[in-house]
């Protein structure tokens, strides 16, 4: 029982670490690059886009998609490592 408890604690800790890391990127891109440091980034350009403007209207959205992908990948790894992944494989119609 005690062993089970430490295992689930370690699993939860690993999960929180992953969520925290993703959250940092999320905040940096959304509020840092797109809002707070936008004037600075606008000095550079990406094609015809001022860079800060690009982050606010394009880049941030691409980053969000990538962040969820990263989350899926590493969360799957953590689940397997601590042996808490689901036994059923999907269960939806193929």
């Amino acid at each position: 029982m005690a062993k089970e408890l430490t295992k689930s604690k370690a699993y939860w800790f690993a999960t929180l670490k992953l969520l925290g890391a993703i959250l940092v990127v999320w905040i940096t891109v959304s509020f840092g690059a797109s809002i707070i440091f936008v004037e600075f980034l606008n000095k550079f350009s990406l094609g015809g886009y001022p860079l800060g403007f690009w982050f606010a209207q394009q880049g941030s959205i691409y980053v969000y998609v990538i962040l969820i992908l990263v989350y899926l990948f590493f969360m799957g790894k953590i689940d397997k490592k601590y042996d808490v992944h689901e036994n059923i494989d999907g269960g939806y119609e193929k």
């Binding site: 993703i22 959304s30 797109s34 403007f53 941030s60 959205i61 969000y64 989350y71």
Partner: peptide, 26 residues
Amino acid sequence: MISFMGYGGSVFLMGWTGGFVLLAMF
């Protein structure tokens, strides 16, 4: 809104997509 607000309209773009990261993870 973006058309008339320009850069300021970004709040809608980021706000209505960024929330899905929170939804997916938390």
